Amino acid sequence: MSRLYVILDVFTDRPLAGNPLAVVLDASGLDSEGMLAIAREFNLSETVFLLPAEDEARKARLRIFTPQTELPFAGHPTVGTAVLLGLMDAVAGKGRAARFEIEEQVGVIACDVEATGKRSGRATFRLTKLPAPVAPPPSPAAVAAALGLDETDIGFDAHVPSRFDAGNAFTLIPVKSLAALGRARPQPGAWAAGVADRGAYLYTRETGDPALAFRARMLRADASEDPATGSAAASFAGALTAFEAPAEGTHAFRIGQGFEMKRPSVIELGLEISNGTLAGATIGGAAVVAAEGTLF
């Protein structure tokens, strides 16, 4: 049977930027192997397959695949799919703003969505799993070797390398400058000793843009790079709480990613601090429909 799909660019308000996402609109009847084969055909970082929700009060159930495996959770698929569902509601006359829940393997995710144009929107979702530290944290020397940097490039203020898991685990590496961020290159012989988990999420406070709180890159051992990584930003909430010691209340951080790839993206990370601990967190951003088509 033929199946409709949509490609969105996520964490951007314009096409051909951000992180591309494929969404197969009706995945009923597809098994895991079929979904994986389609994800390989698209060959994007993630492909979403929409299914009816197990609880009819919820909007949909998502299965998320890379070209290699299924993921329990990912940020840009969640934001992009939420925007698409909101746009479909707007076309159906159900209003331009909505709040609904979607189901992923990691749990039920609450989303707030607004259609900002015929093919554009914004979405924010609450983390179902707050970031937890993963031991042991890597040493500055090990991560520097893994990235082809000097040990003096690693760390700033109170920030040191760490590992956090908010659905997917990442090695989080603070670097002193934009120059160091741009110089980083995976070193295969030293990678395993310095970087574990799904990859290395590098970040710096030096942004070159006062509208951004941080600039970031997400690197993998095979030298591939992600233009926008919502699940890594979710893990980053743990590092921010640990090293920034934010005051009581809510805090918003805009994180720029993908600039080195010519796919500029902006991820909006929200923290809720209560009694000195992270009580809640949100990931949000814009998305635009870039293409539509049919799988045969």
Score class of each variant (00 low, 15 high):
M1T: 09
L4D: 13
L4G: 11
Y5P: 13
L8H: 08
T12Q: 09
A17G: 12
G18V: 04
N19K: 08
L21R: 03
G29I: 06
L30V: 00
L30F: 05
E33C: 09
G34T: 00
M35P: 10
L36C: 08
R40Q: 12
F42W: 12
N43V: 03
S45W: 00
E46H: 01
E46S: 07
V48I: 05
F49H: 08
L50P: 15
L50H: 14
L50F: 13
L51F: 15
E54S: 15
E54R: 13
A57C: 06
R58Y: 15
A60N: 11
L62Q: 01
I64N: 06
T66Q: 10
T66L: 14
P72R: 03
F73L: 08
F73T: 00
H76I: 05
T78L: 13
V79R: 05
G80V: 03
G80D: 02
T81L: 12
A82W: 14
V83P: 09
L84S: 07
M88Y: 06
V91G: 06
A92F: 15
A97V: 08
Q105Y: 02
I109K: 12
I109F: 15
D112M: 10
V113W: 15
R119Q: 11
K129M: 12
L130M: 04
P131A: 03
P131K: 02
V134K: 00
A135V: 04
P137W: 05
A146T: 02
A146N: 11
D150S: 13
D150I: 00
G155N: 02
D157M: 06
D157N: 02
A158R: 05
A158V: 01
F170G: 02
F170C: 09
T171I: 06
V175N: 12
S177D: 04
G182M: 09
A184T: 00
R185K: 14
R185W: 09
Q187S: 07
A190D: 13
A193D: 05
G194M: 05
A196L: 15
R198L: 10
Y201M: 10
R205F: 07
A211E: 13
A213M: 03
L219W: 06
R220D: 00
G230A: 02
G230V: 01
T241S: 12
P246Q: 01
P246N: 01
A247Q: 03
E248V: 07
G249C: 01
H251C: 11
F253I: 01
R254V: 07
G258C: 14
G258Y: 08
G258Q: 07
R263I: 01
I267W: 03
I267K: 02
E268V: 01
E268R: 12
E272W: 04
S274Y: 05
N275H: 14
G276S: 10
T277H: 14
L278C: 09
A279R: 06
G280Y: 00
G285D: 04
L295Q: 02
